[in-house]
């Protein structure tokens, strides 16, 4: 009974989130970004695009997760929506799950669209979709945590920079050690491997390791994000 009510509330929250993001112009910005990706891919010589596509597909949910969630939460905070929702039966957990799903959905749709429109050989769609979902959730959770500690959007951008470096820079290691499986214990590398592997092949063992690493990190971050969100965005007062 309780689970059912919870699912109903998440569904309603998702509807609200999508309407909010649409009206605030997020989808429009998003369409624009996807269009730019496609333009870039179209300009690249074929064997280059071969590498660029997975990288775009990796960076898309990451950037979306990190930046969009910051913008969305700041707008909701400024308009007092978070305060209003905090006195409804919608739980923090449900509120955050809905945010995660709303951003996952656009990432998956965009990645499928970009992949379909660019002409690349065989694609493992299962790995691709799983990879994009896990990547999106990972970066969105990081974005939520940074937002809860930021008073304004500017503060958010400043705090983001070190996190970007910490998360994205180590991915460069893959260029030098493409075969080192243990690099996958680093969540952002696990993400990149999974997505890259969806286009260029990946062993089942390696894919499993990446998925496991990401699921564990995401569960841990989710718990942490709930605590931080309640502490700073709800009980912190105004």
């Amino acid at each position: 009974m309780n689970d059912r009510q919870s699912l109903i509330r998440i569904r309603k929250a998702l509807f609200s989130d999508m309407l909010f993001q649409f009206k605030q112009g997020f989808y429009f910005i998003y369409l624009l970004i996807s269009f730019i990706y496609l333009l870039i891919l179209g300009q690249l010589p074929f064997d280059f695009a071969d590498i660029a596509l997975p990288i775009i597909v990796f960076s898309d949910p990451s950037v979306l997760g990190l930046f969009f969630i910051g913008g969305i939460l700041m707008l909701e905070k400024d308009q007092g929506i978070i305060q209003t929702l905090s006195v409804t039966p919608l739980k923090t957990k449900e509120y955050l799950i809905s945010k995660l799903i709303s951003l996952c959905l656009i990432s998956v749709l965009a990645v499928l669209l970009i992949t379909a429109l660019s002409d690349i050989g065989s694609v493992n769609y299962l790995f691709l979709i799983v990879g994009v979902i896990l990547t999106s959730v990972f970066f969105t959770l990081i974005g939520i945590m940074i937002t809860t500690k930021s008073r304004h959007l500017n503060a958010f951008f400043v705090k983001m920079i070190p996190w970007m470096i910490i998360l994205v820079l180590p991915c460069v290691l893959l260029v030098f050690f493409p075969k080192e499986w243990f690099l996958s214990v680093y969540p952002s590398i696990a993400s990149l491997k999974l997505v890259y592997g969806a286009y260029h092949g990946i062993s089942f063992a390696e894919a499993s390791l990446s998925v496991t690493v990401l699921i564990i990190s995401n569960l841990f971050l989710f718990k942490k994000a709930i605590i931080m969100f309640e502490k700073h965005m709800i009980y912190g007062g105004l």
Partner: peptide, 27 residues
């Protein structure tokens, strides 16, 4: 039911949409 000292609503949505969305969380 709580009405805070300053209004907290979705700015880009209409009055009706605001009430529908926020109201939908209640049993």
């Amino acid at each position: 039911g709580v009405a805070f000292d300053f209004p907290n609503l979705y700015k880009k949505l209409t009055a009706r949409e605001n009430l529908k969305l926020i109201g939908s969380y209640y049993r």
